[in-house]
Write a protein that binds this DNA or RNA. Sequence first.
DNA 1: CTCCGTTCGTAACAAGCGTTACGGTAACAT
DNA 2: ATGTTACCGTAACGCTTGTTACGAACGGAG
Lengths: 201, 201
Amino acid sequence: MSRAADRSAQGETLSRAVWSVLAGQGLERLTVRAVAAAAGCTTGLVMHRFPNRQALLLHARQLLHQVTRGRVEALEAAAGSPRAALRAVLHQGMALDEQTRQEAIVWMGFLAAAVTDDELIAEHRRSNRAWRDRIERLTAASAPEWTAERVATVALALIAMTEGVAAYAAADPAAFPAADQERMLDATLAAHGLLEADPPW
Amino acid sequence: MSRAADRSAQGETLSRAVWSVLAGQGLERLTVRAVAAAAGCTTGLVMHRFPNRQALLLHARQLLHQVTRGRVEALEAAAGSPRAALRAVLHQGMALDEQTRQEAIVWMGFLAAAVTDDELIAEHRRSNRAWRDRIERLTAASAPEWTAERVATVALALIAMTEGVAAYAAADPAAFPAADQERMLDATLAAHGLLEADPPW
DNA sequence: CTCCGTTCGTAACAAGCGTTACGGTAACAT
DNA sequence: ATGTTACCGTAACGCTTGTTACGAACGGAG
């Protein structure tokens, strides 16, 4: 393997270690040593790969955006209709299993860390804007007769709802089971007239 | 002032200092010294009032729940109808001004801190359950003909949406202005048939 | 006035933090 | 084969953290 690929792969390994620590031990224990331990290396490697802790977190945050973007693009491409794509993409944004639940915890951890980190909050806003644009585009395609304002309003309702339920379910999975989240999503899509199937009542 | 009242008032002062630090400097800088500085005292007083940092955070979290509960109960009592109460209570849960924006940041900070703190996450779940129960009760009163499942589903959609938009707006107030949040709330209430007034389109 | 308990500021402690410097080792070029 | 360079583990630095110990100041009781 080439040197450049090694560097890149190590960056990804370290970023995934950041996610792991953030999901399992929280922001307060997100130390360089903990990340190194999770990655199976020493702090020396971490500090050779990144100039400082801030840059490490920023890279991990950027990679998180990139990974989720790849996933939703695949879902969107595989969907048979705009409405199916909208539902599939929103669906993966909730905390339905251990995988997505941990992602929600990591997402919130980065958000909490961004309070003191200007670069992190800038990245957060970029990521959110891309996400919002995507849902607005899918919403517009799902309801071509709507005005731009109505599209934007409903798209905001959808991203806020899935983000919020992910936060609730991440902190209390037993109280917010996957079935409840899915019912919530379908009921809301149906209420806005965006569900392919008939409403569940 | 009596001794007991002094103790209680100091506990509240310190808890508000916790909120202040959490909102302004984030979880990573939420240290005992920073809280003491925000409260205008020394670490000695803090550690005499609370056995340790964990207990300090827990008390601040409990007081946050208590304060917001008082506010929503006042709103609910002042509302002229179940639907007006539902809207007013959900309305105050979004991040519409600097006050509520900071509350949203604090709420997320506690949530991020709860990842490693069992008592904090237990308090978080209690608080969320009470909030969910309240919205379910108001939803049921607003739509008496609905089944319990539909009430629970729509109530979940409403609390998730307001919580989610608060998180978005807290991190990027310019991108999620108050008017957008209010339009979103009214559009969703209208879509579920829960708005007193006519839908905005 | 004196005593005593409470209150809380001061100062210190060990532990853990991010970061830096150094040294050995492995891989490449010549 | 040898010199050179990049890589990274080790160990240490200064600093901050939560927590503890100590002593001064205050107020009510006798």
